Simulated assay, not measured.
Amino acid sequence: MEHVEDDLLALAALGETLPDDAVAHLERCEACRDEVAAFGAVVAVGRSVTPLDTPVAPPAHVWENIQAELGPELRAPAPAPAPAPAPADTTVVPLRRSDRPGGRRRPTWILAAAAGIVIGGVGGGLLVNELGGSSETPPTVVAEVGLDPLPDWQASGSARVETDETGARTLVVSLSGETPDDGFQEVWLIDRDVTRLVSLGVLEGTEGRLPIPASVDLDDYAVVDVSAEPLDGDPTHSGDSIVRGILGT
Rank of each mutant, 00 (worst) to 15 (best):
W109Y: 14
A10M: 12
G121C: 01
A41W: 07
C29R: 06
E207F: 03
G132M: 10
D182W: 13
L127C: 06
Q154Y: 05
N65Q: 13
P83N: 06
R209S: 14
V172Y: 07
H25G: 00
D20Q: 15
I242H: 03
G116N: 13
V23E: 13
A155L: 10
S199Y: 01
N65T: 11
L95V: 11
P94W: 07
D220C: 03
W153F: 11
P79D: 11
L210Q: 04
Q185H: 01
P180L: 07
L111K: 04
D191A: 07
V36M: 13
D6A: 15
E186V: 11
T17W: 00
V216P: 03
P138F: 05
G133Y: 05
G102H: 05
T170F: 12
Y221R: 02
A84K: 10
V142P: 04
S174P: 00
G245Y: 09
E2K: 13
M1D: 08
A112C: 01
T166P: 00
G123C: 03
V198I: 12
P72K: 09
R96H: 06
V172T: 14
A12N: 14
R47A: 04
R97C: 05
E162V: 01
D191L: 04
G233F: 08
E16Q: 13
W109P: 00
W63M: 04
E130T: 13
E207K: 06
W153T: 11
S98G: 15
S176D: 15
I190P: 00
W63S: 05
D89K: 05
A88H: 08
L95F: 01
R47Y: 04
T17I: 09
L14S: 03
V62M: 12
P81R: 09
G233W: 10
A68N: 12
E73D: 15
G124W: 03
I212G: 02
G239M: 10
R160Y: 07
L74C: 03
V198N: 05
P139K: 02
T195C: 00
G46T: 02
